[in-house]
Design a protein around this nucleic acid. Structure first.
Length: 308
DNA sequence: AAGACGAAAGTGGTTGA
DNA sequence: TCAACAACTTTCGTCTT
């Protein structure tokens, strides 16, 4: 299958500047149609053929179905019996119609028959709701779904609230994907006590033997910088400060947000950008006092590292 | 007057017996 | 389960720009 000429409007071949590409799904490559340069490997085609230019193609369009996803309990693969008739066939008799309707009902029941499926169905809809609240990207939702599936498989969810386990899965997925969300934010979005999510999260790590590298304060910097509308230079400097602070062991045992906030504060001073402790404290959800304390610790020990 | 500073008391979570 | 503990917050008076 190497016959698709696609037009990736914003993509250009770095070799010849061509704008048309072959997609080779068998080898998962994309190549320039003019010079043959392989642009990218590992393209994934999970989408159906959405385009249709005439009525004939419109009819053919259904050949692929919706994208495969782990956030629907059967990965979106189940058969759904349509209650309406296809327009290619002759109209159904009323008796036939009733038969089809019953068939549909039982088929739907069997889809979510066992406890596993029922649990998953509910949990994944909750997951989607929570993830929307937190405006999390697709990939985080998918890995949260994977976590949750594994949690059910190891019987971790039994006897515990589905919501808190879903929240723990989301928290784990955020950390795994380096999308910084604090426990506080998640607790607020899902309306569950922070303590409970934390407990579920620890359980998740222990039972699934998952290694998730601890969230470092560096992960919070881009978000804070963005929130405060600071320049990229400030961000780079703040990260440098943070890295040297960490290498000197100044970050252990401290709240990551406080340290991130303090290094941004220092960076903004060094860059001579006006930014008050108050503003940063507000964006970082810590107090000015905490920023001050961290900031002074950092300045005391780092003054010879960061030269003005 | 706004922002920064720092002392002191209070709060909520963790740890270890 | 409980006390000790560290980190962090709240509050408020004072200093600096």
């Amino acid at each position: 299958m190497r016959d698709k000429l696609v037009d990736e409007s914003e993509l250009r071949c770095p070799e010849c500047g061509g704008i048309e590409f072959f997609r080779d799904y068998d080898r998962a490559e994309m190549a320039c149609a003019r010079c043959g340069l392989v642009i990218s490997e590992r393209i994934i085609d999970m989408g159906p053929e959405w385009r249709a230019f005439d009525s004939e193609q419109q009819d053919k369009k259904a050949r692929a179905g919706a994208p495969l996803t782990l956030t629907i309990h059967d990965k979106g693969l189940s058969t759904v019996i349509d209650w309406h008739n296809s327009r290619h066939l002759k109209p159904m008799s009323p008796a036939h119609r009733i038969q089809i309707y019953k068939l549909k009902k039982w088929q739907q029941r069997s889809r979510v028959s066992n406890a596993f499926e029922r649990n998953l169905t509910f949990a994944l809809s909750e997951l989607d709701r929570f993830a929307s609240h937190l405006s999390l990207p697709r990939n985080v939702r998918e890995s949260a779904a994977i976590f949750y599936r594994r949690m059910i498989e190891t019987r971790l969810v039994r006897g515990r609230s589905i919501e808190s386990m879903v929240a723990a899965a989301i928290y784990a997925a955020c950390r795994q994907n380096r999308i910084p969300r604090t426990l506080d934010e998640i607790a607020q979005a899902v309306n569950i006590k922070k303590r409970e999510i934390g407990r579920s999260y620890r359980l998740l790590l222990k039972t699934l033997l998952t290694k998730i590298t601890p969230m470092t304060s560096v992960n919070f910097i881009p978000r804070l910088v963005n929130k405060l509308r600071l320049s990229h230079e400030v961000q780079k400097l703040a990260i440098t400060i943070l890295e040297s602070a960490r290498s000197m062991g100044l970050t252990s045992g401290r709240g990551p947000m406080g340290i991130a906030a303090a290094s941004i504060y220092i960076a903004s001073i060094l860059q001579q950008v006006k930014c008050t402790q108050r503003d940063i404290a507000l964006s970082a959800n810590v107090t000015e006092v905490t920023i001050r304390n961290r900031y002074q610790e950092l300045m005391r020990k780092l003054d010879f590292v960061v030269k003005i």
